[in-house]
């Protein structure tokens, strides 16, 4: 027992605890994802038994429709900021007409989906894990289980599907408002007309840019809803646990969203050109 008392021993012990808990979370998170995949594929055969339309619509409203104002405002400001930044830089080259293209491509490929995901991770991811976490500590999840109602089907699936549908919609909204933000700056600083700005944008954009962004936003939806649900379902230890789970859900979602964004950007820039 003496070796446990020196610092080397305790460092080893700590390390093995960290490795253990990481492995545990990775496997149980994978298991939750596997259950969702399984249920989705059963749902393709017998949708009536798996998908509850009312629950999905309810979640689409809560997650999607109610996120519209905040996504719109942040995207508009971000579009304006991007336009100001680019006019400032491009002025040195006398190339301000490129603002439209830059904002358009930048938003559809990258910033639209990303800012949407960040806002949604904070708003929706947090509320998913707070809600499921509260249900976990008040034995509601156990109650569902004992009634023979699968909590993954009843709670996780509607949230997953709702966000999967709403996230790309919000990303498109964000694209539009970002571009409008860019136009506002161009109109004020460069005296561009709306028609001209629109033409410049459409000329610069390819359909692929839009699709790239939408594929990203779908992957962000998966990340945010699954991490949110997972952190909610593993909560233990009362209200404090719910708070910790919510924080973890937001932090982890943001890390994985930004990592996935980087991955997809690399994929669409270098691999699938």
């Amino acid at each position: 027992m003496t070796w446990q008392n020196n610092s080397f021993g305790s460092a080893i012990k700590k390390l093995s605890e960290v490795v253990n808990s990481t492995l545990y979370h990775v496997t149980s998170f994978a298991l939750l994802n596997w259950q969702v995949i399984k249920l989705m594929s059963i749902g393709l055969v017998k949708p009536g038994k798996i998908f509850k339309r009312r629950h999905i619509f309810e979640q689409m409203f809560l997650m999607g429709v109610q996120s519209i104002p905040i996504v719109a405002v942040t995207s508009l400001f971000l579009g304006m900021t991007l336009a100001m930044l680019t006019t400032y830089t491009l002025a040195d080259f006398g190339a301000e007409v490129w603002v439209a293209g830059l904002v358009g491509v930048g938003f559809t490929r990258e910033l639209g989906p990303l800012i949407t995901a960040i806002v949604v991770a904070g708003r929706v991811g947090a509320s998913i894990s707070a809600e499921l976490g509260t249900m976990t500590v008040s034995e509601e999840i156990d109650a569902l289980d004992t009634m023979g109602i699968n909590p993954v089907r009843y709670l996780v699936l509607p949230r997953f599907i709702a966000l999967l549908i709403m996230m790309p919609c919000l990303a498109i909204l964000s694209d539009y408002l970002g571009i409008i933000g860019g136009y506002l700056i161009s109109a004020m600083k460069l005296d561009m007309s709306f028609a001209y700005y629109k033409d410049l944008t459409i000329e610069a954009l390819k359909l692929k840019d839009v699709f790239t962004g939408l594929i990203k936003s779908v992957s962000f939806a998966v990340i945010i809803s699954m991490i949110g649900c997972y952190q909610g379902l593993i909560v233990s230890g009362g209200a404090e646990g719910v708070g910790q789970g919510t924080t973890k859900s937001v932090v982890n979602s943001l890390i994985f969203v930004i990592a996935a964004d980087s991955f997809f950007t690399a994929l669409f820039t270098y691999v699938i050109v």
Partner: peptide, 24 residues
Amino acid sequence: NEARLVEVRKRFGMLFQSGALLNS
């Protein structure tokens, strides 16, 4: 397995210590 458990659980009723109603 889970599927057979569901069948067994349908014949159970359980009253939890705190009621465990779905608050929503």
